[in-house]
């Protein structure tokens, strides 16, 4: 690890100020992604702005049929939160299936989506529920948030404050974990929310995406059988040691069916 200057502001304004617009500074949330990269000396930030002392950024509250979850809320808190479990159990289950207990106790919602790892779980929920990402500057629709592999709509120095998840009528998440890392090799989030049917996929491609054909089929008939035969093209899917593009494309269908099955 290289040397850096450390800041621990108490407010959002101070955090944004300390972070500035420079590429060399960075926010620190749970550190589960950032610290290993620094230890391996793949990242050498000049300034670290630790968000852990900012009180307004943690916790879950209900607001007009939506759950607003603070960006600094850990995966473990989301998994065990009574409100989340009552209103969007699929989200609690998703958070409870991230990494291991240590990672869940440190890693945060904001850190996860800001990082936009192609195999992270949360992007499936953000897209699948049509959530809104609230930053210090604006509100970004979940549909516009994930741009590409490790790339989001966030501007340099923009801070995620919370994510607002609409409460769905039904939702489920089915994950096929990468056998080694246990990140999602393919994760599919299926929801009926605000009169809309949404199917969002993570892990399979460079960035989370929705599958309109599946959404249409499920709006017609919300059953696993409706998804049979809807094949996702393997073109553009991720391919690595653990799964070829073809295999991932196949798993999208399997996981989508399993998500739907789990709701019946």
């Amino acid at each position: 690890m290289y040397n850096f200057d450390y800041h621990r502001p108490n407010s959002v304004d101070d955090a944004v100020r300390a972070r500035g617009g420079s590429e060399d500074a960075t926010f620190l949330a749970g550190g589960m992604t950032l610290l290993p990269t620094m230890k391996q000396r793949l990242a050498s930030p000049s300034d670290i702005v630790d968000l852990s002392a900012i009180q307004d950024m943690t916790g879950v509250c209900e607001d007009d049929g939506r759950l607003a979850i603070g960006a600094m809320t850990t995966h473990a808190s989301v998994a065990s939160d009574p409100l989340v479990n009552q209103k969007i159990p699929a989200l609690a289950k998703l958070a409870g299936g991230i990494g291991d207990p240590q990672v869940r106790n440190r890693g945060t919602l904001g850190g996860s989506i800001a990082n936009a790892d192609p195999s992270a779980d949360y992007p499936a929920a953000v897209l699948g529920l049509g959530a809104t990402v609230k930053t210090n500057k604006r509100e970004i629709s979940g549909d516009d948030f994930f741009v590409d592999m490790f790339e989001t709509a966030l501007e340099e120095g923009e801070l995620i404050l919370s994510v607002n998840f609409p409460v769905p009528d039904k939702a489920a998440y089915a994950k096929f974990p990468n056998p080694a890392s246990r990140y999602a090799m393919v994760g599919v989030f299926v929801a009926q929310v605000g009169g809309e049917t949404r199917v969002a996929v993570t892990g399979a491609a460079p960035s989370a995406f929705r599958v309109s054909e599946m959404e249409a089929a499920l709006s017609n008939s919300f059953s696993a059988d409706a998804l049979r035969g809807i094949n996702i093209p393997a073109d553009g899917m991720n391919s690595d040691l653990h799964g070829s593009a073809e295999y991932r494309a196949h798993l999208v269908n399997v996981m989508a069916r399993r998500a739907v099955e789990s709701l019946s």
Partner: peptide, 11 residues
């Protein structure tokens, strides 16, 4: 070495 960490070497 492609499997140089637990991200790829599956224990």
């Amino acid at each position: 070495l492609i499997t140089g960490s637990y991200m790829d070497y599956c224990m």
